[in-house]
């Protein structure tokens, strides 16, 4: 299986281009339980990579390790050729932004203020927001299609709108690598599709996007590249058509499926039986 992983990834990254995210032999355990087991994977630059796998397969943990929020027991995560562990925290926060699942504030917060938090790594901790910060924050809101919500209270937004605000906060960090942890959780189908479209758009703008995803069909429809985890290990990685095949799905999830072709996009559609 490991062989296939390396094959799949090396084919996607164009030779000679700057490398995207390269995770090498990352291992992490908590309370004696191995959660991430010697993971090698890549996310090509300027592409939308989906991190797939069942509950507890280590998707969120791997994202947190890449973001530097937890420290791996072994292994490295490098972006654009730089080991992220060797970069100072604040500097790393200017390159890598992480949107966790369901982050909630305990106090009432204006949408623009929430987005402005993303500017913190870019300025002295003693300094306040500048006009440039406010401009960038509004721009980030516009990129996620939430410009007119700037002065609303975060608490009055729907789940999908809040998710977009969190992405805008991450964009305000001006990252080259954007990590999304199950960004479509608890969203209705329209909001799910909108989130995936947004991720594709950001990737097209040059941001390397790595998202933990639950819904295989969403991943099949939107991702450029996917990595399949099971029990903390990479089972398969490569293009959607290479990874989302009945054999892999059955091995990882224990369910049978047929892979159809989407009549409009030609992308795979999984029909479970």
């Amino acid at each position: 299986m490991r062989d296939r992983t390396t094959d799949g990834t090396s084919r996607v990254a164009a030779p000679g281009s700057t490398p995207g995210l390269e995770v090498a032999r990352v291992r992490w355990s908590v309370a004696g339980r191995l959660i991430v087991d010697d993971v090698d994977c890549t996310a090509p630059p300027g592409a939308f990579t989906g991190l797939l796998g069942p509950n507890g397969s280590g998707k969120s943990s791997l994202l947190r390790l890449v973001a530097g929020i937890t420290v791996p027991d072994a292994g490295t995560a490098a972006f654009a050729g730089t080991d992220l562990a060797s970069v100072r925290r604040r500097e790393r926060a200017r390159r890598v932004a992480f949107v966790e699942q369901e982050a909630a504030a305990e106090t009432p917060l204006r949408v623009l203020d929430a987005v402005l938090l993303g500017r913190i790594p870019h300025r002295s901790l003693l300094a306040g927001d500048t006009d440039a910060d406010r401009h960038l924050a509004r721009e980030a809101l516009a990129r996620v299609g939430m410009a007119e919500f700037a002065d609303r209270s975060l608490a009055t937004l729907s789940g999908g709108e809040r998710q977009r605000v969190h992405v805008a906060r991450a964009l305000a960090q001006e990252p080259s690598l954007l990590l999304l942890d199950e960004p479509t959780n608890h969203l209705d189908v329209a909001a799910q599709l909108a989130t995936m479209t947004l991720a594709r758009k950001l990737a097209a703008d040059g941001v390397t996007v790595l998202a933990a995803l639950h819904d295989l069909n969403l991943a099949a429809a939107a991702c450029d590249h996917v990595v399949m985890l099971d029990a903390g290990r990479v089972v398969a990685a490569g293009s959607v058509k290479e990874v989302l095949v009945p054999a892999v799905i059955e091995q990882v999830y224990g369910v049978r499926c047929d892979v159809l072709e989407h009549p409009a996009t030609g992308r795979p559609v999984l029909a479970f039986s």
Binding site: R64, A67, R90, A93, F98, E100, A103, L117, P121
Partner: peptide
């Protein structure tokens, strides 16, 4: 987590 993500 968000605080760590912002470089703290």
């Amino acid at each position: 987590t968000a605080a760590a993500g912002l470089g703290l």
